[in-house]
Structures are given as C-alpha cells and as structure tokens.
C-alpha cells in the first residue's frame, strides 16, 4: 500500500501559541472529510495543544513525530 497523500502542509514553525492551532483550524476548514493535513510547529506547547485540539474537534492525529525542535503532526479531517 502506498502512503497516503498529504493534502496540505501548514508551516507554523517560529509561531507562538495559539497561532499554530489557529492556522491548523483555518486550514482544516478547507479540506474534505478524510483528507490529511500536515503541521510543522516549534511551539513547545504543541504536543499537548494538538492532542487537546484533536480530541475536542474530533479530527484525529494519525501521525506524530519530533525532529530536533520541530514537531510534526498529521491530522485527518473528520
């Protein structure tokens, strides 16, 4: 099975809270149900914030990693 295509990438590196989440919420509005959104962030609160946002809005995190100071999340639009 080939990896699923990322529909859109939000580069929120260097942005402080709450902008990574705000930009994510904006971007996901434009996606169709089931499409994937990748977000890159350096805000140290990102892991907890994205977990909470995904849980509250029902758009799950399907992939999560950290490389150096950059957090990467892949979210699926519900």
């Amino acid at each position: 099975m080939s990896p699923e295509q990322i529909a859109q990438v939000v580069d929120a590196k260097g942005l402080s809270c709450p902008m990574p989440i705000v930009k994510t919420a904006q971007a996901i509005k434009g996606l169709a149900s089931g499409q994937l959104l990748e977000v890159l962030a350096t805000d140290p609160g990102s892991v907890k914030d994205f977990t909470a946002w995904a849980k509250t809005t029902g758009n799950p995190i399907v992939e999560q990693s950290v490389e150096g100071s950059v957090y990467r999340f892949v979210l699926r639009k519900k």
Partner: peptide
C-alpha cells in the same frame, strides 16, 4: 486575544 483564539480554534 490568545484565550479567545484558542476557544475559537476549538469551535
């Protein structure tokens, strides 16, 4: 503004 933005992002 941050408190308002966070709430808005959560719908």
């Amino acid at each position: 503004a941050v408190m308002a933005s966070g709430a808005a992002a959560l719908g």
